[in-house]
Amino acid sequence: MNTALHPLIENAQLLAFDLDGTLIDSVPDLASAVDKMLLDLQRAEAGEASVRQWVGNGSLALVKRALTNNISGDQQIADEDETLQQAHTLFLKHYQACKGEKTVCYDGIFALLDTAKAKQIPMVLITNKPYQFVPEILQELNLEHYFDLVLGGDSLSEKKPSGLPLLHACEQLNIAAQHGVMIGDSITDINAGKNAGFKTIAVTYGYDHGKPVQECDPDLVVDSLDELV
């Protein structure tokens, strides 16, 4: 394949991708699970628009934000809170049941994935989603064969924005961090990349927690991943 890649990734030795908001739009299913959880607790539904702002820091943070109806809710409830634990269990049950019903791949992702794979650039998936949901989603969307390593938010002792998952991927694949590029949709991904010493690319269409990714100072911003090919 003679297709060139963007100069920022042409010589990369590792591409690390976020999942939700970068490769797939999973909010419709996440919102369904959140709303069912809230109804179980006799609370008002949150709705898809709110959930779209809350996704990206893992399932526990999402449930905290849903319980408080606030993007800062993850800072207001202790992890040990009994209502939170009950709500989180309910959310996981509902998401397990609906996780692939309305989730779709974003336009433009396969141009980059196919080109990088043809050029034999190692790719890893680093998501804050609980790992238990990830393999089946990847399989259903024909994404599983692209990645040399897949890490969920509970795979290691820390998740993004920590750089640990990215550095773990480097260690597993024997690649120096300065040759890695993190591709994501939010400040969580960009900070994880910076914390690991990666270059960073942000997409504009994902879940930005209400903070435009341009303000997160990534090395590059694109409207579609096919701009990188």
Rank of each mutant, 00 (worst) to 15 (best):
M1R: 13
T3R: 13
A4G: 00
L5W: 01
H6C: 08
I9C: 03
N11F: 07
N11G: 06
L14A: 06
P28L: 00
V34A: 10
K36V: 10
A44F: 05
E45D: 08
A46R: 07
G47I: 05
E48N: 05
E48A: 10
V51A: 04
V55H: 01
G56A: 03
A61L: 10
A61G: 11
S72L: 15
G73N: 02
D79V: 10
E80Q: 14
T83D: 13
Q86V: 15
T89W: 09
F91M: 08
F91C: 06
Y95F: 13
A97N: 14
K99H: 15
K102T: 11
K102A: 14
T103H: 02
Y106W: 00
I109E: 02
L113I: 05
D114L: 06
A116H: 04
K117Y: 11
A118L: 14
A118I: 11
A118H: 12
K119V: 00
Q120R: 14
M123D: 01
V124N: 04
L125S: 02
L125I: 01
I126P: 01
F133A: 09
V134S: 07
L138H: 01
E140G: 13
L141Q: 05
N142D: 14
H145R: 14
S155W: 00
L156N: 05
K159E: 05
S162C: 05
L164V: 14
L167T: 12
A169R: 01
A169C: 13
M182K: 04
D185G: 09
D189R: 03
A192R: 11
K194A: 12
K194G: 07
N195V: 09
G197L: 04
F198P: 09
K199D: 09
K199N: 10
A202F: 03
H209K: 12
C216A: 15
P218F: 05
V222F: 07
D223V: 08
